[in-house]
Each structure stands twice: as structure tokens, then as C-alpha cells.
Design a binder for these strands. Structure first.
Lengths: 336, 336
DNA sequence: CTGAAAGCGCTTACAG
DNA sequence: CTGAAAGCGCTTACAG
């Protein structure tokens, strides 16, 4: 079965390929093609199961109707959810999404960008890691629309959609303080990424305001890292600081490691230790007790990121930069 | 910054575009191009940051060096793991992977196939759902390489790589019997897909052999379905059949719903109820007690699926059909 | 109202 | 050892 092209249809219909192209792209009427011809062409296209070649049309127009999505790790629930919503949103608008994960080697991130560039995606949505600032600058130079999500670079003027991390951490910590905890620890990673800094700052500010600050209550876990190491680091940390009565974990995998530790050490939550984690996860809802979390407005973030990106793909709005913050939601469960 | 093409390089180097093309594709030596010219062209390409247009080369060659991957639901851990390994394997061979999820509407599955076809993928890896048999037949007619994973259609002669579901269910059930359980329930879904049938048959055969069969010990949960419904169905089922002392859950999301039920009903595992589930999941390892599971050889399945697919993409092996079964692994934890 | 033709950026058979 | 040219399947400015 050979591939049906626009030419086959033109032959069959006895018209030129231009006419077929106009009809197929629903420009028939605009180009003043007679209703009879339009119908004939459409019927034949259907009869022959004609599928336009995206490749050929991309080559001609320079557009692929696709966007590249680079996330930190697609196997992390947070990112796979995000990806799913983005795919849906983009799909509604007729855009395909090409995913990829940065994985563990930040050095490879520019290669991902290059390969998406080579695939000629029309725009990018990225959760950037530290080393990507340069890659993103390059995209801007190439005039490629880019929207960052989850984090961004403070000194770069690029559209982004993120949660209000400072506020979310501030509220979560405030909630722990209000619940009577006095030695509230923080578990962060060492990535230094801006969203992590802001979360830490939210925690620190409210803790200091309440005169509860204690530097040794803060743990940084190397990033990236394996779960085993996270578990052993947190265990060591809790053993060394027995006065800690609550912990705020700044990402879901840190929180999950925390649950393992609690389990291993036989601690009672929240009696021995209260827990709040950023990002929701299946295991947080299933755990006994269920875990209080800061839920990110994933859906809103994804929807708006796509919207902004689409805006940047039409010429008039090309230069507009939108910086959006969405509020997180403290989901109160049983762990505090 | 304009797009650099082969022509720019040819101009700069003072050679023809053919020469450039040969060099870029590492056919320079074979075509007898002088080492000096090769070096010159390569240097210029690098200096200008030349990136070949995949689109143009695809249009010309008819190959895209990409494969389409259709999974049941990318947000399910099992499938996202599978996707990740497949992406890695394919990546090693210079192939890009386009994912998509069938989601909840089986009727849309043919559209996914069509859109991947339109994107001109060179081959397909699919976890088919019931309604896809026809779509897959179409792919075969179009001479597109296809490898099915996780399940297949009994009457269709298509390459596939699956776990030995019958054996895995048989062993898991045998293990429950050996551990002294007498009223072993089975929770299946109503999809009727072959892997589910085989798992059920493995269970049934060994149960009958031991004279433990009881039809009311088998529950079918509508497919597809929401977690809440799964939880309430399982709850009703366990309440109605109080003699049940062990349950074999045939997928990870059934097992997870089962854990919710156990939690809600306040049952002690394994004292009140022993549990084994198919497919591993983070929550199974974190749960107290940890849950015994049938782990699928994900990595092996993914690797071999890619291997077979690649084989089918070279002409000589085009027609070869490989049907492969891999053994599952019973991971013994604390829930039995 | 419709067609002939150029061109997107490549690859490759052919010629010399 | 290297180049001129055809062609992949489209879109679109131009002509009539």
C-alpha cells in the first residue's frame, strides 16, 4: 500500500495540487473554490485515506505544530502529572508534545535542547536545572518561544509559571508553629535552584520571626542522589538532633525518604515527629497516618504555561514576557 | 540568527552540497573524499553550529529515526517505567521515542495510531487495549514494524514481548497456598485482556488442583474505573465474603485500592488478610507491612522489544515474528 | 475560480 | 575525487 499524496488526489479529481492543498487546509472557500470541487476533493481524500505528510508541510512552512517539554525526571510523579496535563492542553490546540527527562546528568541537558531544536519544535516548556541558563539564552537568541515552569533564573527575562514557593513554605511552617511545634526542621536539597531557595526562605523568615531559628535544624541532601542515601542522611540527622519535633520536607522524594526513615526508626507520627512535605504523592495519601502536604496547582501551572507559549508563537505577542505565580494549597491530613 | 543549511557550508567551504552531505553523514571516506576536504567541511560545520534538518532528511529518505510508543496510561508507574527504559534503549541507537497514552477512551486509540503514522514514525511499540486489534492489523498492512508488549491478541501473528503471566500467577497463588491460606480471593478487572485472562487462569488452575476453588472468591472490577469505585467494590466484596484470608490482586492499581480498603477496614496484614499484588510500586515498599509482589521484568521486556523492533526495521528481517515470554519474579515481603 | 512553478533542506544515482 | 540535478510532499505567491 503506497503512501497517498496530494498528487494522487489531484489526479483522481482532475484538478491541480494547489486546489487540493487549499481544500485540505480548509482554505477552499477563502480561495474561492467552488463548492462542488471542494466536496469532490474531500470525498476522494477520504476514500483514499489520505493523510497529509506533516514532514513535508513542516519543511515547507518551518512549523511543526509541536512543542518540546523538558522536565527534570519524567518518572517522578510530580513531573509526569505535569506532562500529562500539558500534553492534554497542547493536544486540544492541535499541538504534539515531545517529552524528555534531564535525568541525572545535567551536562546532557543542552543536548536535549539541541535535539528538540533539530526536531524543529515550535516552542519549549522547560523545568530548568542549574546548568541550563545558557541553553535557554541560546533559545532566546534563536527567537524560539520558551516558557519555564516550576523554577526560573532570577537574572533572566523569560516567561515562567511557578507556584508561590515562598508563601507556600511560609504558610506550611506557620501551620506547624500554630500547632505547637518548637523545633521544626527543614530538609532541603543542595541543588540551589531558585524554587528551593524561596521555600527555604519562607521557612526561615517565619521561623526567625518566632524566635525558633536553629541552624542545625536544617539539612541539605546532596543533589542528585539515590533514595538510600537520602534515607541514611535523614536518619543520621534526626538521631543527631533528638529535639526536632517536626520536619518540613521540601520535595516529594525528600518526604518519601522521610517516611522510610520514620518507619525504620519506629517513630510515631505526629506524636514523635510531625511531617509536612511539598508535592502530593500517592504514598502520602495511603500512609498511616496520611501526610499533610503543600499541593502544587499543577493543572493551573500547566494550562497557563501552554497558554503563554501559544501566545508567543503568534508574531504580535512574540516579545511579551509573562511572569506568573500561582498559590499552593496546604492539604491538611493527619501527620501534624 | 538564521538557520544554517548544508548550502551555507558548501559555500563557505567552496565545495558542492553533495560533498558536504557525504561528509556530514560520515560517508566521506567511502565516497573517496580527500581527508583535507573532510576536515575542512567538518570544521566549518562546527564553527557555524550546523544542525542538520531532520525534517528535510526525513522527507527525502522516508525514515524519521523515531518510534511511536503507545501505552495504556503514562501516569501509571508501571508504564512510565517501561517508557523510560524504552526511551533509553532507543536513544542508544539514535532513535527518538514519541509517547502517548490511550487514556480512558479506547475509541481514541486509532487516532493515536493515525497521528503517529502521520508523524511518520518508523515503527511502533504498543501495549494494546481491546479495541486496537484492527488498528494493529492496519499497521501490518502498511508494512510498519510493530512490537506489542505486556499483552497481545491470541489470533494475531505479531511480535510481542510479555511476562509469563500464567506462570507468575500460578507461582504467586502456590506461594499463598504453601503459606497455609485456604480462602484465596482473586481481584481482576473486567477488561478481558489476554494478560489478565492468563493470570486468572494461573490462579484458577492451581486453586482447583488444591480443591480450594470457590467462584464467589473472584471479583471483577469494571474497567476502566476510578479509584474510589475500586475501593468501594473491594470493600463490599470482602465484607460479603468474610472467610477470605488472602487476596491476589492482578494489577498494581487494584493492589493499591486493596491497601486503601485494608486501611479503611482496619484489617491487620497478614494476620487478617494476606496480600500479593502484581507489579511493584513505591507504596508497596513503603507500606507497613511491606507488600509481596510479582515484579515484572520491565527492563528485559523493554530491551527486547526495542531489539525486535529494530530488527524488523532492516529489510532482511522484515517478516520475522518473535513471540517472547519473560519470567516474572515473586518478591517476598511481609504481607503473606 | 484554478493552475504552473518555485522552493523548504536534504540524499543519492549518475556523470565525469 | 567531486559536482549538477532530480525529487521527497507539501504551501503559496503569482498569473490568468
Amino acid at each position: 500500500m503506497k503512501k497517498i499524496t496530494i498528487k494522487d488526489i489531484a489526479n483522481e479529481a482532475g484538478v491541480s495540487i494547489s486546489t487540493v492543498s487549499f481544500v485540505i487546509n480548509d482554505k477552499g472557500e477563502k480561495m474561492g473554490i467552488s463548492a462542488a470541487v471542494i466536496k469532490k476533493v474531500k470525498d476522494i481524500a477520504e476514500k483514499l485515506y489520505y493523510r497529509p505528510s506533516m514532514i513535508a508541510s513542516s519543511l515547507r512552512t518551518g512549523k511543526t505544530r509541536s512543542i518540546g517539554l523538558i522536565v527534570e525526571d519524567i518518572s517522578n510523579h510530580f513531573f509526569s502529572q505535569l506532562a500529562r496535563v500539558i500534553e492534554n492542553e497542547a493536544g486540544k490546540l492541535g499541538y504534539r508534545v515531545f517529552y524528555c527527562s534531564i535525568g541525572n546528568d545535567d551536562n546532557e541537558s543542552d543536548e536535549l535542547v539541541q535535539s528538540l531544536l533539530q526536531a524543529n519544535v515550535d516552542g519549549f516548556i522547560i523545568t530548568p536545572t542549574k546548568l541550563m541558563e545558557q541553553s535557554i539564552d541560546n533559545l532566546l537568541k534563536l527567537n524560539k518561544p520558551v516558557v519555564l515552569i516550576d523554577r526560573y533564573f532570577a537574572n533572566q527575562n523569560v516567561s515562567h509559571v511557578v507556584m508561590d514557593n515562598y508563601e507556600a513554605a511560609y504558610s506550611a511552617t506557620q501551620y506547624l508553629i500554630n500547632s505547637g511545634y518548637q523545633n521544626i526542621a527543614l530538609v532541603n536539597n543542595s541543588s540551589g535552584m531558585i524554587q528551593m531557595q524561596l521555600r527555604e526562605k519562607g521557612y526561615t523568615d517565619v521561623i526567625k520571626k518566632n524566635n525558633l531559628f536553629n541552624e542545625s535544624n536544617i539539612l541539605y541532601i546532596d543533589y542528585p542522589n539515590e533514595e538510600e542515601n537520602r534515607v541514611s542522611e535523614i536518619t543520621k540527622f534526626l538521631k543527631k538532633n533528638p529535639k526536632i519535633d517536626a520536619v518540613l520536607f521540601l520535595t516529594n522524594y525528600l518526604g518519601l525518604a522521610g517516611l522510610h526513615v520514620v518507619k525504620n526508626m519506629g517513630l510515631q507520627v505526629p506524636k514523635d515527629l510531625a511531617i509536612v512535605s511539598f508535592d502530593d504523592h500517592y504514598s502520602f495519601r495511603l500512609n498511616t497516618p496520611t501526610i499533610t502536604v503543600v499541593e502544587q496547582p499543577l493543572e493551573e501551572i500547566a494550562v497557563q504555561a501552554v497558554e503563554i507559549l501559544m501566545g508567543q508563537m503568534v508574531d504580535e505577542k512574540k516579545g511579551e514576557v509573562h511572569k506568573v505565580m500561582k498559590k499552593g494549597k496546604l492539604v491538611i491530613r493527619e501527620s501534624v
